[in-house]
Simulated assay, not measured.
Amino acid sequence: MGKVLSGLDMFHIAEVLIDTKDELKFSAPEELPGAVNMKIDPKSEQEVFYADNVAYATVNSLGDIDGDMEVADLPLDMQSRIFGKQVEKGIHFSSADDKTLEIALGFRAKLSTGGYRYYWVLKGTPELVPVEHKTDEGKATPQTAQVKIKFMPLTNVKDGKRRWDAKAEEGNGVNAETWFKQVVYNADSFASSENDTVVDVGK
């Protein structure tokens, strides 16, 4: 029987602290409650090479990686941290000088055969959150926060190996507690227990 994915929960966000050719470092992940929807749309650019008067080979290259995240709410404190807003006496101010963080995003989806499939998308820059509200028409209408994120491969070629995502299914040490403990960008970055036992994920 094939596997069917359903549901979505456990959004986690971490800051990309350093991503250079020689060094890679993330902050500790922080959970963002209220996951509603997540879409990751990597664009593949395809080039056909012709030889001997026929299509001889097809070369694929990675293009844009578009992400759409929807949550019940993106708290003001988290918005200020992600988008570099200034907070004065509890008031959150936006300015033309704000600097948006690069973030990694983790989440999971339920498998019909039991357990979950886990994800990390490793580096993305969110767009500012639009403000859209609607008057209640006889009953309260829930209004969610929708964030567009432009993802890209890591710059790091030593540890991150220019990767842009990691996936694993539950088992062999992979579960909610271990997967979201850190951003998983290679096998050595994943610790499945307090003794830092490493399982083979992220390849």
Rank of each mutant, 00 (worst) to 15 (best):
M1G: 15
K3Q: 13
V4G: 01
V4P: 00
V4L: 03
S6D: 09
S6T: 14
G7L: 08
D9F: 11
H12Y: 14
I13M: 09
A14S: 12
L17M: 06
I18H: 05
E23V: 04
A28T: 15
E30R: 14
P33M: 01
A35K: 02
A35F: 03
M38A: 05
P42T: 03
P42W: 07
Q46G: 11
E47Y: 15
Y50A: 14
Y50G: 06
A51E: 11
D52C: 09
D52A: 10
A55I: 09
A57C: 12
V59L: 13
V59D: 06
V59Q: 13
N60A: 11
S61D: 11
L62P: 07
D66P: 00
G67W: 07
M69H: 03
M69K: 02
A72Y: 09
A72G: 10
D73W: 04
Q79I: 03
I82W: 02
V87K: 05
E88A: 12
I91S: 03
H92Q: 01
F93D: 00
F93K: 06
S94D: 04
A96Y: 01
A96Q: 03
D97E: 04
T100D: 00
L101P: 00
L101I: 00
A104G: 10
A109V: 11
L111W: 09
G115A: 05
Y116V: 00
R117A: 13
R117G: 10
Y118K: 08
Y119W: 14
E127D: 12
V129I: 07
H133N: 12
H133T: 09
H133R: 09
K134Y: 09
D136Q: 03
D136A: 11
A140L: 05
A145T: 10
K148M: 01
K150I: 06
V157A: 12
D159C: 08
R163Q: 13
R163K: 15
W164D: 13
K167V: 15
A168T: 05
E169I: 14
G171W: 06
N172G: 15
A176S: 14
E177I: 12
E177D: 14
V184S: 04
N186D: 14
D188I: 01
F190E: 08
A191S: 10
S192N: 05
S192Y: 03
S193T: 14
N195E: 15
T197P: 06
V198R: 09
V199P: 06
D200G: 07
V201D: 07
V201H: 07
G202F: 01
G202V: 02
G202R: 03
